[in-house]
Design a protein around this nucleic acid. Sequence first.
DNA 1: AACTAATGTTCTCATTTTGTTCTCAGGCAG
DNA 2: CTGCCTGAGAACAAAATGAGAACATTAGTT
Lengths: 201, 201
Amino acid sequence: MATDRAREVYDYIQAYNARHGYAPKLREIASHLGISSRGVAHRYVRALQAEGLVHIEPDRARGIRLRKVKTSAPRTSSLPLLGRIAAGRPIEAIPGEDEIDLSEFFVNRERFVLRVQGDSMIEAGILDSDMVVVEKRETADNGDIVVALIDGTEATLKRLQKNRDGSVTLRPANAALSPLRLSATRVRIQGVVVGQFRSYR
Amino acid sequence: MATDRAREVYDYIQAYNARHGYAPKLREIASHLGISSRGVAHRYVRALQAEGLVHIEPDRARGIRLRKVKTSAPRTSSLPLLGRIAAGRPIEAIPGEDEIDLSEFFVNRERFVLRVQGDSMIEAGILDSDMVVVEKRETADNGDIVVALIDGTEATLKRLQKNRDGSVTLRPANAALSPLRLSATRVRIQGVVVGQFRSYR
DNA sequence: AACTAATGTTCTCATTTTGTTCTCAGGCAG
DNA sequence: CTGCCTGAGAACAAAATGAGAACATTAGTT
């Protein structure tokens, strides 16, 4: 909430609305604050509108409508999707899409999260200490990023390439590292990377 | 934490925030410490900011924001966290952590998602068509990745660097692109990137 | 329709409050 | 001693607050 006074105004509007079923006049708000100026009361209401807490029917008496219910922790797994951002242009709205649903990460297949250590996939945008969402599978397609177990002991994160002779090549996304070409019998795929995320904290 | 006194301030801000939903004024912090100087209280808060525990909205009343969110909330959005993966070793279990909580992305602040276009942050692991989670703010700290509006028209995603003379430099994470040094009046910060994710589909 | 009073809206102008930066001073440990 | 942490408080900058004028719109009333 913007300021102390704005908060008082919001609380008053809520209480008034609960009691009467409609919003107070600006003069009543001012009077409740102990001030004389309707203009000032209007400024506070406009601040509340800017925060999305309230809606104003222009020029209407008692034209204030409450927008949000005061629930403190409704956790949904969606966030507003504002649009695209690209260098050199204003943010462009994406029509038809106003929310991004992250629940795709939580679909009830066999999925788990791994914290990545090391830079082997850095050129694919997977950095050290990033999280990857892995779907449990024993097979994968060419070009998939997979969690592969080599010789039953070493687990690595690499891009998969199936060769004609039946062997597979595990390619790191890092020019400093070399691809590994291995016979199919030595490699067991444990899962495929279906997502990645990172938190800046 | 720097000093005992700074810790007291941090604890007080946390408690106050949990109780009221917003931060205390400097005068209230000083009073809680039993001192009379707002200047001293401000010095402690600035120390907390230097440690990254807190963010300050400059010149704003109650402009202190907690940076690390205590998520002791019910975890609706969680996935099993199996462990770490690194090249050349088996997956290593992480003791004490059996679930990864994604709800930090959905905390009750003003957040939204943008789809990134272009390669300007590619070396920071933010690729074309990735999603970034942005927290609405008008200010940011050095090194933060920000959504900045230049001259009120061009929106870009860059790393922020504040210069001593008051100007700011917007640094792309891409050697092929040049940093932009601009006077502070031309740049308006719209938000700070707090997360990033990508879906392989 | 014309008039009127009430209400909302937009301003500018002060004043108060709050945040910010600074210097100075005392206590205390190494 | 020097180098800290700590506190006081002055001086300034910016935000928050309040007053009130002027105008627009609405809702009645005649």
